[in-house]
Design a binder for these strands. Structure first.
Lengths: 240, 240
DNA sequence: TAGTGGTCTAGACCACCCC
DNA sequence: GGGTGGTCTAGACCACTAA
């Protein structure tokens, strides 16, 4: 049983996306909604808070709650929730993972520091070429996992979805990620696996992914040829 | 008079950053905090919600609230809150703005659609080279403003801070932004104003910035030489 | 002045962790 | 079983907008 505010926010989001609450229009006030859903006004407000951080509505004291006409911008191409994993992110599309390297080794000083582990605590080093079918989209991922946190990882998992193994088989939850996006010149790997021409720029997303308890378990660099991928995000001002 | 939950979250954040609540430690439970600050537990929780979305703490039902050891990662280089404007973002550093072009013109079809204006509603077109002093950091900005929303913009404002004009003089507030980050090959402008070598990749941030009422007022592309700038961000999973 | 959203309370119940 | 955080309530007061 989900929380009430979650169910209500899901319902209101649906009404906006389905056009029952059209863009630019006022939606019912919080008192009406609390009567309709038979909850307290606080619970309605909490539901609206979620919709607001998603950029769908705009509230003004004394006036009401409006549907923003930008509410339907959604379905962004590379919407950056990378900790969902590429497999989930590209849902509906089939992904082929070509495992180029799968090793277990000791981290160098920098990597040990990033993953907050000791120098004698091993890490998995995995390089994969991911191919999104029917899309001509190729991605090159250099990934390290702390073996102490993600035990039993195998090349078989790497061929499918590592995140599925971590979440379903190991029962771990992700807490968030720290990311750096940058452009780079292509290297030999990129030429080979991304079909880069000699001077084609590369877009790299470097990330550290954390478990819910704050422990970093993954460090990765995901490289894309400049003309195949971009990252989009929505930033909503808090307050109001 | 700020809201209580805001004051409390500011105070708790300070305690974490100052080390009064050390990394990895448990902070006082919500009942203790509500007694200390003389507010209800709901208000304490709302304050902690803010700190949690900032990635400083981790809460576990039945167990308590911990300071994450990643809490001090802050001070990221190009932390992506671009709607603050470069001037504010680079606070402490002096910025020189070299106005390359300042025009008012009619938008083409695509731009009119992006800014949600009519084809006969004029826009300011501004190209600026921004130079962060002592940093050798150069940025090339191509910007369009809807003239109907940002009246009275002048070349003088462009030499200083346009955002300051919008916020202080016009009294407008920003609601958020939609961004796309991508890599690109350098063009003639980049060679000239970013000191790009012939094949140096460029990192471009394309953004649409909205006012609080959801109206888009700015479309811009900010270009940086690949080795001078990266964008970092923190993504925290909701829930828990 | 009526109606809106923002904040806050005091208390309640629940799910969960740890002892 | 005792303590934690998550949710929810019913009502209150306030700030603001609009008529």
């Amino acid at each position: 049983m989900a929380a009430k505010y979650k169910e209500i926010s899901d319902e209101i989001r649906r009404r906006i996306l389905d056009g029952e609450y059209p863009a630019e229009s006022l939606i019912p006030d919080q008192n009406s909604l609390s009567k309709e859903f038979e909850v307290s006004r606080m619970t309605v407000k909490k539901a609206l808070d979620i919709i607001a951080t998603e950029g769908l509505i705009y509230r003004q004291r004394g006036s009401g709650t409006y549907v923003l006409k930008t509410a339907l911008l959604g379905n962004r191409d590379g919407y950056l929730k990378e900790y969902e994993g590429l497999t989930k992110q590209m849902k509906g599309k089939s992904i082929k993972s070509n495992v180029i390297q799968f090793d277990i080794e000791f981290p160098d000083e920098e990597l040990a520091s990033i993953l907050m582990i000791e120098a004698n605590s091993p890490v998995y080093k995995i390089i994969r070429q991911r191919i999104v079918e029917g899309n001509d989209l190729k991605i090159l991922e250099h990934t390290y996992y702390a073996a102490s946190l993600i035990p039993g990882l195998s090349k078989e998992h790497a061929k499918k979805s590592i995140y599925e193994y971590i979440q379903k088989d190991l029962g771990l939850s992700f807490g968030g990620a720290f990311r750096k996006i940058q452009a780079d010149k292509p290297n030999e790997f990129d030429h080979k696996y991304l079909d880069c021409k000699e001077h084609d720029p590369v877009l790299e997303v470097e990330q550290i992914v954390y478990l819910k308890n704050g422990k970093p378990f993954e460090y990765s660099r995901s490289r894309n040829r400049f003309d195949t991928r971009s990252y989009t995000m929505v930033d909503v001002q808090r307050d109001s």
